[in-house]
Design a protein around this nucleic acid. Structure first.
Lengths: 152, 152
DNA sequence: TTTTTAAAAGAAAATTTTTCCCTAACTATG
DNA sequence: CATAGTTAGGGAAAAATTTTCTTTTAAAAA
């Protein structure tokens, strides 16, 4: 798909606040409401906009203890990888999981209430997944920057 | 704030799809449209819902090369930390930055088009920030899981 | 018991989304 | 050169949704 300046601005606006009305957007973009409406529909249809979501403040729902965990598998068999990735998808404490290059195989983002819950997660859930070789956890001291918007 | 089961379900629903109408939500929750409306307003007012955003598919906007960078500062003076965090906030390639425990001081998430752009980002932008001691980059081979929803 | 408060419902009003139809500008084609 | 086809956009009407207002109900407090 080919984006013109208006598309890029529109994406920027919607990534910041998806609840703006088409009228507000039409003012900001110097377009008619219909034109805005059609452009958004196209972006949705083409899958550029994949989802509209509400973002929840983790401190308000007792999930402000965040850790990143490096994971090494014992063996990189197709089987092990599949099993591990499957298990990860089922664990609700894990919000993100990336297969990465480097010393470790995976990087996980884990969100829980506190250190106690993290310990429980590690002992009862994470390390009970078979074929995990080693783990290394880093705790988030401060979230300096966090945006879901992609600068295009 | 105190959440009942309905609030938790509502938050779950809105974290998955913020474009559902109150009528749809009222059906799923066995409530009236007004009751849903008031509950959402309260969640917004109290800051539980912090933002509504459109999520953009990074592959559709040429930002699918993702790397995590560990950063070590040369000195942990108040001054250095402030400067670094300031610079990070201004770099649009960096979507996330966490001050973390462990061998390194910071973990960054960087999104660019390809390795060439990443190299340019490292050379021209990241390592030109003063007071950076060392960096260690890990490239994302595969995004196994990525959700903005917090399971409450 | 009475009063107060909170949550919820229905209906009306206000606003927004969505559809429909028309125009203008540009492109391809005979 | 004329003509059909395509695309983006605008205005207005229709449909749907959000928002407000009023009332009811049930639980909590006095």
């Amino acid at each position: 798909m080919n984006f013109d300046v208006t598309d890029l601005k529109l994406l920027q606006f919607l990534q910041e606040d998806a609840k703006q009305t088409n009228k507000e957007l039409s003012n900001r973009l110097n377009l008619s409401v219909t034109a805005v409406y059609e452009r958004i529909r196209k972006l949705e249809r083409e899958g550029v906009i994949s989802q509209y979501v509400a973002l929840v403040d983790k401190t308000k729902v007792s999930k402000s203890f965040v850790a990143f965990c490096h994971i090494k598998l014992v063996q990189h068999t197709q089987e092990n990888i599949m099993k591990f990735e499957q298990e990860v998808a089922n664990l609700e404490e894990i919000s993100e999981c990336y297969h990465i290059s480097g010393d470790y195989d995976y990087l996980l983002k884990v969100m829980v209430q506190d250190m106690e819950d993290f310990r429980e997660f590690m002992v009862k859930k994470l390390t009970s997944i078979n074929h995990i070789g080693s783990t290394h956890s880093m705790f988030v001291i401060n979230e300096v920057k966090h945006t879901t918007a992609i600068m295009i």
